[in-house]
Design a protein around this nucleic acid. Structure first.
Lengths: 104, 104
DNA sequence: ATATCATTTCGTTATTTTGCGAAATATAAA
DNA sequence: TTTATATTTCGCAAAATAACGAAATGATAT
């Protein structure tokens, strides 16, 4: 007797986003971009974070893959900003998660 | 020239919690406990999740370690519930993260 | 054409995570 | 005391993650 259980796509999606947020360097970047309401460059970040350039690049790639940030080429730099639409979506997801027991 | 940069303890703490939440099985459990505003048993969960008992036990252990849930021995069961205090703390953390650009 | 600059990709290594089944634990029932 | 039940721990294998330095890329300046 085999279990035929699946976890909903919604949960899986949120888990993916949450996972992408679950690293100090990546969380720092997201917090900074949101706080400043601005964008930044990899070069800025590498000076304030305890990781090397290539490692930082990997983290940016992951955040991009998760849809939380986007990079705009601005030679010779790449300007990284929050992906506002998805960031709002994430915000909403967390809001729901923490508040869906508040029903009347 | 060595970098002497550190990431704040706050960010590290939140990253740890976020990481613990960043898996479909664990997120499912948290959502369920919060939604139902109730507790549940490992045996309930194993029937609705696509993982084996020992794997589920590992996930519960991780959530417990992160402080998000707590287990109360109720022989022969163990009753798992949200750790309300820490759950509220997590809620507040996420709220801040997503809203701290809303300053006047 | 060469050099420079910011950044990424590649190749590698070490560590962590995920998952399983078997064995162990702890409690209650027969 | 044996048996049954719920759950965890152990030991393992496979896969994913994190980090690094070196090399590659792509653009501009000399």
């Amino acid at each position: 007797m085999v279990k035929t259980i699946e976890i909903s796509a919604d949960i899986k999606e949120m888990a993916g986003i949450t996972k992408a947020m679950g690293h100090p360097v990546r969380l720092y970047i997201l917090q900074k971009l949101n706080r400043m309401n601005a964008c930044c460059y990899s070069g800025d970040l590498v000076d304030e974070l305890p990781v090397g350039r290539s490692t930082l690049s990997q983290h940016l790639k992951e955040l991009k893959y998760a849809g939380l940030i986007q990079g705009e080429v601005e030679p010779p730099y790449i300007k990284y900003c929050l992906n506002q639409e998805n960031w709002e979506k994430a915000k909403e997801m967390f809001h729901k998660l923490f508040n869906e027991n508040q029903e009347i």
